[in-house]
Every structure is written in structure tokens, then in C-alpha cells.
């Protein structure tokens, strides 16, 4: 793919990711704790990973956190670091899945697990481990559930894209 095309694709997917993140923010949460999210914004990141490459996915993932923090005014505050840790761990876990040749749903699961684990580590380190530990079981179970759901959605989108071309 040409370099220009790549940049355009990243731009489109990043804005998609931002839109999804925003939608998720304004939608009422049906989960036991409103801090938990399904992670709709992970879909464009997964699309980037499979349509382009890991490097582009990293750009979209960290770009999303950066843009969101600028849009909603928490750039370089505590919550920004929590989120960026989530994004970085998520990318590390995606890389690991690529290396282990995992399927799309499994990669998505790993990504969401990494995302939550990164946030868990920062929160545990700064606010105390017992508070973070209280959420650990929830984090694991919800990562698996929502990671798989997002993974299957992404997979079906990718098959449709593949067929169209």
C-alpha cells in the first residue's frame, strides 16, 4: 500500500475509534460498575491491525488516548496516564498474540486483558493494591467476555471487507 493511503486509513480509523469512544461515554452503562466499558473503540484498532499492521495499530491506540484527553481536557493528568498505560499494555498483548498466532477473537481478548491489566497496575501502584485487587476478578471475567464479543464483531467486519474487495 502507498504511504499516503496508509496515512489516510489511519486517520479514518482513528476518528472512528474516537467516535466509538465518545458513543460509549454518553451511553448509559448497563454494567455493575459504570467504569467498565465494552470497548467499542477497540474495533477500529483491531481493523487497523489486520488491514494495516501493528505499528499503525499502535498509532491509532495511543492516538485515541491522546486525542480523547485533549478533547475532554485531561491531557497529562492522572487519568491520562492510567489510560495510556492501558493502551500500551494492550498493544504489548496484541503483539504477543500476533507472535503466538492467535485468532482474531483471541487477539481481541488479549488486547482487552492487556488494556485492563495496564490500568490495574497503574491504579494499584498509585492508589493501593487492595483497592485494585478488589476489581481484579471482575476485570478478568469482563475482559474475556467483552474481548471475545468485540473480537467476533471485528472478525465479521473483516470477512465482509475481504469479500467486498
Amino acid at each position: 500500500m502507498k504511504k499516503d493511503n496508509r496515512v489516510v486509513m489511519i486517520g479514518v480509523l482513528l476518528s472512528l475509534s474516537l467516535i466509538f469512544a465518545y458513543i460509549e461515554m454518553i451511553l448509559p452503562s448497563f454494567l455493575p460498575n459504570p467504569a467498565f466499558k465494552i470497548g467499542l473503540s477497540q474495533i477500529p484498532i483491531l481493523l487497523t491491525l489486520y488491514l494495516l499492521d501493528l505499528k499503525s495499530a499502535t498509532v491509532v491506540s495511543t492516538g485515541k488516548v491522546l486525542m480523547m484527553s485533549l478533547l475532554f481536557g485531561y491531557f497529562l493528568t492522572y487519568i491520562f496516564f492510567v489510560n495510556i498505560a492501558g493502551a500500551i499494555f494492550s498493544i504489548i498483548f496484541i503483539g504477543l498474540s500476533q507472535y503466538l498466532k492467535f485468532s482474531i477473537p483471541m487477539t481481541s481478548l488479549m488486547s482487552s486483558l492487556g488494556h485492563n491489566l495496564g490500568q490495574f497496575l497503574v491504579i494499584g501502584y498509585t492508589l493501593g493494591w487492595n483497592i485494585a485487587l478488589f476489581y481484579l476478578p471482575v476485570i478478568i471475567v469482563f475482559s474475556v467476555l467483552f474481548g471475545l464479543i468485540i473480537g467476533f464483531i471485528s472478525q465479521s467486519i473483516l470477512t465482509k471487507i475481504e469479500k467486498r474487495i
Partner: peptide, 19 residues
């Protein structure tokens, strides 16, 4: 626009066990 061929890996036993 040309898009690289996506290799779909099926979920296998190893992944189910992990989940």
C-alpha cells in the same frame, strides 16, 4: 484501494483452554 490478504486463523483448542 488494495488491501493485503487477511489470514483468518480459526480458534483452536489451545485458545479455548486459555479462555
Amino acid at each position: 484501494m488494495n488491501i493485503p490478504k487477511i489470514t483468518f486463523i480459526k480458534m483452536n483448542k489451545k485458545e479455548y483452554i486459555l479462555i
